[in-house]
Structures are given as C-alpha cells and as structure tokens.
C-alpha cells in the first residue's frame, strides 16, 4: 500500500544529501577556520542520516492506519484550493471581496448548513477585517475592483 510518509522520508533523505552536496561547494574550510559550507554540511548530513533510520524503521511496519479517509482528503483538497484561489485572485479582486467569497467557500466546505449563516459569517468576517486593517491598523491592502 502507498504510504505518503515513506515518500516524505525519501524526499527528506534526498534533500539532506542535496544540502550536503551543495554546501560542500560553498567551502567547508577546516576545524580551525570553518567556511560558510561547514555548518550546512553537518545539518544536511543530520537530515539524511535521521531520515534514513526513520525510513528503515517505517518500512518494517507492515500496515498503518491511513491518515486521511476519502472524505477527509476531499475536504483537505478543497480547503487548500480555496487558500490558493485567495492568493491568486486577491491582487485583482481586492482583499475585502475575496475574503467574503473565501469565507463563504470555507463555511460550505465545512458543511455549515443553509446560505444565511454562511453569508452572515462571511459578511461579518469581511467587515471585521476591513475595519481592523483600514481603520485601526492603517495598513494599506489591495482593494482591487472595489478600489
């Protein structure tokens, strides 16, 4: 069975090895005069060694309960997609409008029933953030089409 943790540990091992290799190129120096690569070489080696031993111990475990079921994975994907959409659209639509839409989307993903409650929560959140950043903290954020 595919286990994401094993894949993650493999990635960490490669990352550790890559950090060590790249850092070696920065110049390790010697013990009396360590160079800029000295410390990251040690850190990279530590990542590679630790992740290798965890990898080996995890391989010995035949089966482990999945972290996410299908419904959970769907929810996680939808939440992550909403976060990404907020980042992509915010500079164009402005933070107030995108906040309103994203809060509504989060409410629906988390199964808040009906449309009145999600609308009230999203409207309240957008208004609160607008008042907080524009009137209290005086932080200028993109307003997009509402500019």
């Amino acid at each position: 069975m595919f286990r994401l943790e094993i894949f993650f540990l493999g990635f960490l091992f490669i990352l550790g090895a890559a950090i060590t290799a790249v850092s070696w190129g920065y110049g390790v120096g010697n013990l009396a005069r360590p160079g800029p690569g000295f410390y990251p070489v040690m850190v990279g080696a530590a990542i590679a060694i630790f992740s290798f031993f965890i990898f080996v111990s995890e391989l010995k475990i035949k089966s482990r309960k999945a972290v996410l079921d299908k419904a959970g994975a769907k929810k996680l994907a939808l939440m992550a997609a909403t976060f990404c959409l907020w980042i992509v659209t915010m500079p164009y639509l402005g933070y107030v409008l995108v906040t309103l839409l994203a809060t509504y989307a989060f409410c629906k993903i988390m199964k808040l029933e009906g449309w009145r409650k999600p609308l009230a929560v999203s409207g309240g959140t957008a208004l609160f953030l607008y008042l907080l950043f524009d009137y209290w903290l005086y932080i200028d954020l993109p307003r997009g089409i509402l500019g």
Binding site: M90, A102, F106, M110, L141
Partner: peptide
Amino acid sequence: PQILMPIISLICLVGVYS
C-alpha cells in the same frame, strides 16, 4: 468550528500578507 475556523483562516491569510 464551522463558524470559527473560516474566520480564523481569513485572519491568517490577511494577517500574514499585511
């Protein structure tokens, strides 16, 4: 949490951007 978490999510997004 269906009410609280969407609010906190947006505070995180706008907060870190600001």
